[in-house]
């Protein structure tokens, strides 16, 4: 293995090699995560609803998702005749890429970060906004009214929930005095996790995160009972699979950021850093899945009201309170 790395390094030079290896690893992580999440979600749903979920293929039905992927790969990729072809084809990729970028910024352990950017958190949010591009491109180019409606909903929902997401994260930035994710984790060393100081911020963050990723109970852009399947109604086979992949990747990314911001990142006793991080991420993902199967879907106006009338003022108030208390503590 190390010989291979060395030879690659000889060809490409130091940091590029790291980059390539990192992205390969990320790709593996993304794929495994998506497959695991589909299974996990179905299992949790079964548990919540008092049934078993996937059972037949592999232990606990673990191989079910892999087989589904094989099935999707084998399906014909039908492109409807009146779609806006280039945009239609580009949309899933655009949806997927920002999530990948975000993952590359996460500090998986104290010294395991692909890119340790000084304004890491800002980059995360900048790319987080980009993920929307895939959705509206898909919804627009499909030439389908349900898809378009789903896209419009997604856009307005994302605009609305981006604000509380940013504002709640800003409270953490204030506390740690940096935008660098590694430093934010370092600031929580000694189990002084931000969740203990900023429970409200974490709550707002999680709710907004769920909305940003179009998860139930905020999944109105793809509300199947109203819009067939929302923005990806027209997508066949792998197109559909990539959208799914993107959604689960984005969920993972958001939960990873949540873990970094509020749960001390990769810090934890005994086990190595990445394991702790994964544990924390999957704990947050579990919460999101539980929320999906517990709460009914919000109506559109309720969704907007929640953001503009409750979350944003709350987040603002929290931010101001944090600033005030910090000033008091400092002086």
């Amino acid at each position: 293995m190390s010989g291979l790395i060395d030879s690659v390094q000889g060809v490409l030079g130091g940091w590029l090699t790291e980059l390539v290896i990192g992205f390969v690893l990320l790709a593996v992580l993304i794929t495994l995560n998506a497959m695991f999440m589909v299974w996990f979600e179905r299992k949790v749903a079964g548990w919540v609803q008092g049934r078993h979920g996937p059972l037949h293929h592999g232990p606990f039905g673990l191989a079910q998702t892999a087989l589904d992927v094989v099935k999707l790969l084998g399906k014909e990729f039908i492109i409807p005749s009146k779609v806006d072809r280039p945009v239609f084809l580009l949309a899933p990729i655009i949806a997927f890429l920002p999530a990948l970028a975000i993952l590359s910024l996460i500090p998986y352990s104290a010294d395991m970060t692909l890119t340790d950017a000084q304004s890491g958190l800002l980059i995360v949010f900048a790319f987080g906004g980009l993920s929307l591009g895939g959705i509206f491109m898909g919804g627009w180019s499909s030439n389908n009214k349900y898809a378009l409606l789903g896209a419009i909903r997604a856009v307005s929902q994302n605009i609305a929930y981006e604000l509380p997401l940013l504002l709640s994260a800003m409270a953490i930035v204030l506390m740690s005095g940096t935008l660098n994710l590694t430093e934010i984790v370092d600031a929580q060393a000694g189990y002084r996790w931000n969740v203990f100081f900023q429970p409200l911020a974490m709550l707002i963050f999680l709710i907004s995160a769920a909305a940003e990723t179009n998860r139930a109970p905020f999944d109105i852009p793809e509300a199947e009972s109203e819009l067939v399947a929302g923005f990806h109604t027209e997508y066949p086979a792998m197109g559909f699979a990539v959208f799914f992949l993107a959604e689960y990747t984005y969920m993972f990314a958001v939960c990873a950021i949540g873990a970094v911001l509020f749960l001390g990142g990769a810090a934890g006793p005994l086990l190595p850093g990445p394991v702790w991080l994964l544990l924390k991420v999957y704990f947050l993902l579990f919460l999101m899945v539980m929320a999906r199967w517990t709460y009914p879907r919000l109506r559109f106006d309720q969704l907007m009201n929640l953001a503009w009338k409750y979350l944003i003022p709350l987040a603002l108030g929290n931010l101001m309170l944090t600033a005030f208390v910090l000033k008091l503590v400092q002086t």
């Binding site: 949010f125 906004g129 856009v155 605009i159 981006e162």
Partner: peptide, 24 residues
């Protein structure tokens, strides 16, 4: 770096998305 990120965050994440919304 900061201006670059602001260009992404505000122009791309804000203004362009709002324009898309208006166009839709």
């Amino acid at each position: 770096e900061f201006v670059a990120l602001m260009q992404l965050l505000i122009f791309l994440g804000g203004i362009t998305v709002a324009m898309v919304f208006a166009v839709m």
